[in-house]
Design a protein around this nucleic acid. Structure first.
Lengths: 98, 98
DNA sequence: TCCTTATTTCGGTTATTAGCGAAATACAGA
DNA sequence: TCTGTATTTCGCTAATAACCGAAATAAGGA
């Protein structure tokens, strides 16, 4: 879950997810919409993939990214958990520097 | 909103919020439950306060922390936004290097 | 005023990451 | 095989943050 919240903590990555909410897009499509270099975007894609927030499919030379709504739903559940009075989370996991 | 997701990206801070979900606690109470130094925790408190996820009240020498559920609800809305098909967010804001 | 308790600030170390451009890789088509 | 397009990897720099212990601050009570 840390990975997911960390992925969501970047405005650029939230923008990517917002774009993908509307429709699946290739890396190039997304790069055309955002003001960061393609290599930088590639790094953001890796973060989003590690958090399982997006899925990918290669078609020829292009790679299409899609929003993974089931993981977004998991985030939702985690946040709702903070509002309800059940029990805990975060065991075993510990902070990495920054 | 970046501040909020960033605050939530740390397991230690999510643990603090989970503790506060059950009841208001002083910094010392929280320190007794977690395996990090008090100075480190103080840093985490600042992050949570900046994100407006907690509120504080001083009583004598102790400071009591409380969960700010209204901001948690804002997070909820932001995540729900990723699942619905309305429009965008993140304008003006840009990534700081980590 | 002095002492004790609670909490934060400071100084330092180490690890992580956003960003860039250039080079490398992957694939399709001629 | 060679070429062109799409995307990622690499090397780098600068900024941020988690952590610790020690020192500083805040407040109350003797």
């Amino acid at each position: 879950m840390s990975d997911v919240f960390n992925a969501l903590s970047s405005p650029t990555r939230r923008q990517i997810l917002s774009l993908l909410k509307a429709r699946d897009m290739t890396a190039g499509d997304i790069a055309d919409q955002l003001a960061v270099g393609k290599s930088t975007l590639s790094g953001h894609f890796n973060v989003l993939k590690s958090a399982d927030l997006v899925t990918t499919e290669r078609n020829g030379t292009t790679i299409t990214y899609s929003l993974n709504t089931s993981v977004v739903e998991d985030v939702l559940a985690a946040v709702v958990g903070l509002l309800s009075n059940e029990e805990k989370e975060t065991k075993g996991e510990s902070d990495a520097p920054v």
